[in-house]
Design a protein around this nucleic acid. Structure first.
Length: 684
DNA sequence: GTTAGGGTT
């Protein structure tokens, strides 16, 4: 194939011969020249991520405006940028740079900019037509995260307004036809992968295999009998299943075998263990972190029970569910592909082939599984119009949209479809709207300093580590951060501990003190970075931190407007809480309030796992609720009667908030609620 | 008596 007239490729850009994509360079360059948008489909190892930007650069793109390349994860954006910079014989930033949250390695000379998809989305705020780019490459589009679906819809609208712009959607070979159709029959260029064959064996449980751990251990045992070498990757839904399977495998006493757990909550050092091969065969027991985020080198066998915990938001109750589900075919195939990267492999699926065939083809995209308040807020804030009109590849159902509106109204961010001042301010904060609302509450209650610390950590995983083998020791170390009656204030204690250590200690010493106190150093740093970022934004918004330390009451009053539908009233019979919208929950055992449940609580989150748990909880004074609930409160009146002493008709008032009785039998003057009845009572 | 994984102005 020849290059189209007018297309040339700089000979200074070299494409590695061993990469499959190199055979398609001319085809791709022609496609990019001829079409405003193309879809590039290819499996792992094809070289798309590194070579597509180079093809665009070799075509002379990225000089007037940049070539922007998005990645779903920060680590990928920075490492791919370093790799491509190296391949172009330039220092990072000169020709190729990257930007992720907290790190900007872009210079004026950078032609190629790698970034997370969230960064590109954020740039729409200040650059609504994305004029900073002449080319955009959206990588890993098949992952269908919220950010990716948002970008796809945005780009569909942008293309007619930016005729000069070129867009490449890069994806695994999944739902390629849907992408093509979505973009008005955009051409698809298929690039082969570079992988070794993987055999699939279906190995459903036998009758005497009691549970998942047993099944997994037997399968690992069978692999050992076939082949004593070759690392094994086992996918499991969560930490507990990993622990149980590890126990079962160790009981089998397999020779020369090292069992390595792998999940995101492990410390960096514990995660690193899977990247260093030692003596003996490794059996890595991993959550979904190994499906997309981490690639473990040298896996020969994959064991896939076909299960994962999937996050789904219940639109009726506003509760997140994290329940174990059967994974889709696409996810099963992705897992299979985690072996066969350096030699041929075998994938054991621990269910019937018929089961595989009848599973859904794809995992629901995130937009169909999450609460939409944050999405709607963002769209309003970016002036992208109504969510109902936005061209999503998979439009969310109207019920979910309505629930999103309701949540924003609860927060005071939306009135009659328009963002309020609160809404505008929430739109500026890179946080979940509920967490943002806490910060605005912090200003109202003069507790800004404290609430920024709390809201920053609530969006992260808990920085406190609790390794299985040393739970008691970890709990002991964490005891000094506990605060009776408030898990939120406990975070303030932890913050004070960190800040004190931060002032005195070197980085190495900090890492040690974190380790000694069962704190995850990386997450502590992340907490601090988010905190500092929010402090900077608040300075721009002219918010001033309180001069005085805030009281517990000020802090909790500040948090409450963000958590109005996450309150609970104790139910002694059930030893649980009545929550909003007819839910019932218990306090998670990790909370300091779990043993002595107070009459009223508010929770940072309600998540359904083995039960519906409230996590990060504080005691709540119900007297605050009527004011905080405002127009969300519902009033009813009973027993209107003439009262001689007061010379007017009185009644018993009940006030409820999301169905919970926050005021009972309050005596009120009834005239303002029912004038005619009062007149009648007065006359008789 | 204990939660999968990502991401941000």
């Amino acid at each position: 194939m020849d290059l189209r007239p007018g297309v040339s490729l700089s000979t200074r850009v070299r494409f590695p011969e061993e990469l499959p994509i190199t055979a398609h360079v001319v085809e791709l360059a022609n496609g990019i020249d001829e079409h405003q948008i193309i879809i590039v489909a290819g499996e792992t190892g094809s070289g798309k991520t590194t070579q597509l930007p180079k093809i665009c650069f070799a075509m002379g793109r990225g000089t007037q405006a940049r070539i922007g390349c998005t990645q779903p994860r920060r680590i990928a954006a920075s490492s791919v940028a370093a790799r491509v910079a190296h391949e172009l014989d330039s220092a990072l930033g000169d020709v190729v740079g990257y930007q992720v949250r907290f790190t900007d390695k872009i210079k004026a000379t950078s032609s190629v900019k790698f970034m997370t998809d969230g960064i590109l989305l954020a740039e729409i705020q200040s650059d609504p037509l994305l004029r900073a780019y002449d080319t955009l490459i959206i990588d890993e589009a098949h992952e269908r995260s919220l950010n990716i679906d948002f970008l796809l819809g945005f780009l569909k609208r942008l293309l007619p307004r930016r005729r000069d712009l070129r867009v490449i959607i890069s994806s695994a070979t999944l739902e390629i036809e849907r992408f093509a159709t979505f973009f008005n029959n955009a051409p698809v260029i298929q690039v082969s992968g570079r992988t070794y064959p993987v055999d699939v064996l279906y190995r459903p449980p036998s009758d005497d295999e009691a549970d998942l751990a047993d099944l997994v251990a037997n399968t690992v045992n069978e692999i050992t009998e076939l082949d004593p070498r070759g690392d094994i990757l086992v996918f499991l839904p969560g930490e507990r299943e990993i622990r149980e399977a590890a126990g079962e495998i160790e009981q089998r006493a397999l020779p020369h075998t090292v069992v390595l757990p792998l999940y995101s909550r492990l410390s960096a050092a514990e995660q690193q263990r899977v990247f260093h091969s030692g003596p003996g065969r490794r059996v890595v027991l991993a959550t979904n972190v190994a499906e997309t985020s981490l690639t473990i080198p040298g896996i020969v066998y994959v064991v896939d029970p076909g299960l994962a915990r999937i996050n789904r938001y219940d639109v009726r109750t506003g509760v997140s569910q994290l329940l174990v589900e059967d994974i889709s075919r696409a996810s099963a195939d992705q897992r299979k592909g985690r072996c066969g990267r350096v030699q041929s492999g075998v994938c054991f699926r621990l269910y019937e082939e018929q089961d595989y065939v009848t599973r859904p083809a794809h995992t629901d995209p995130e937009i169909k599984r999450v609460g939409l308040a944050g999405v709607i807020l963002r769209m309003k804030s970016l002036r992208l119009g109504d969510i109902e009109e936005f061209p999503f590849l998979d439009p969310p159902p109207q019920r979910a949209i309505n629930e999103g509106y309701r949540t924003l109204e609860e927060l005071g961010a939306l009135e009659e479809g328009q963002l309020t001042q609160i809404g505008e301010q929430l739109g500026r904060l890179p946080l979940d709207p509920r967490l943002g609302r806490m910060i605005l509450g912090g200003r109202e209650e003069n507790a800004l300093r404290e609430v920024v610390i709390i809201a920053s950590v609530l969006g992260l995983q808990d920085p406190r580590d609790r390794p299985q083998a040393v739970q008691q020791k970890a709990d002991e170390a964490h005891r000094k951060f506990r605060e009776e009656g408030s898990d939120f204030v406990a975070y303030l204690k932890l913050w004070a501990f960190w800040q004190d250590a931060r002032k005195r200690l070197s980085r190495r010493q900090l890492q040690k003190i974190c380790h000694d106190n069962f704190l995850n150093y990386n997450r502590m740093r992340e907490w601090e970075e988010i905190h500092d970022q929010i402090v900077r934004i608040l300075k721009d918004l002219n918010f001033k931190p309180g001069a005085q330390p805030a009281s517990g009451e000020q802090i909790h009053r500040a948090l409450l407007p963000g958590l109005l539908s996450k309150i609970g009233m104790y139910n002694p019979e059930g030893r649980n809480y009545f929550g909003a919208r007819q839910t019932r929950f218990v306090i998670h055992p990790s909370s300091s309030l779990a043993r002595k449940p107070p009459a009223w609580v508010m929770a940072a989150e309600l998540v359904e796992t083995s039960q519906l748990f409230a996590r990060t909880v504080a005691k709540l004074d119900p007297a605050w609720l009527e004011h905080a609930g405002g127009s969300l409160c519902r009033r009813s009146h009973a027993d209107p009667h003439w009262e001689q002493k007061q010379g007017q008709v009185m009644a018993k008032e009940q006030v409820t908030l999301y169905g919970l009785p926050i005021v009972k039998d309050r005596s009120v003057a009834y005239a303002r609620y029912n004038q005619p009845l009062c007149r009648e009572l007065f006359l008789t």
